[in-house]
């Protein structure tokens, strides 16, 4: 594939902003968590695009491995976060019978 790395970055930016918009707008907690996953994926894509860029920008190339490794870690953490978040959702549902963010205002002044 000879797509310029810039396009990969652009794609990542688009995905990130869509995920952010969804994160701000949606009320359903689960959907919000999904938007977070989306953003994390965008970050992953950014890392990989950067790795590709650094691999290619010298003549002959040298494979840059930091990108993929970090991406692995991101995936792991995303999994962890999704699990914990969903456990919280379950606990929340048990307590309030709702999954709407608007009903969770215990932090209010």
């Amino acid at each position: 594939m000879t797509v310029p790395s810039a396009h990969l970055f652009i794609l990542a930016a688009i995905l990130f902003s869509i995920g952010a918009a969804g994160f701000f707008l949606r009320r359903n907690v689960i959907v919000v968590l999904m938007c977070i996953e989306l953003m994390l994926n965008a970050a992953n894509l950014t890392f990989l695009a950067a790795s590709r860029m650094h691999s290619l920008d010298v003549p002959g190339g040298r494979l840059d491995l930091q990108g993929p490794i970090f991406a692995i870690f991101v995936i792991v953490v995303a999994a962890v976060e999704a699990a914990v978040g969903l456990a919280l959702v379950i606990a929340l549902y048990r307590r309030k019978q709702t999954v709407s963010l608007d009903d969770v205002v215990e932090l209010k002044d």
Binding site: P4, S5, F9, I10, A13, F16, S17, A21, F24, M53
Partner: peptide, 21 residues
Amino acid sequence: VAAALLCLGLAAVVGSPATAA
């Protein structure tokens, strides 16, 4: 805000000289 984030991302891409365009 979302648009800001998008623009910033794009700006980073466009402005960076090291991007393998």
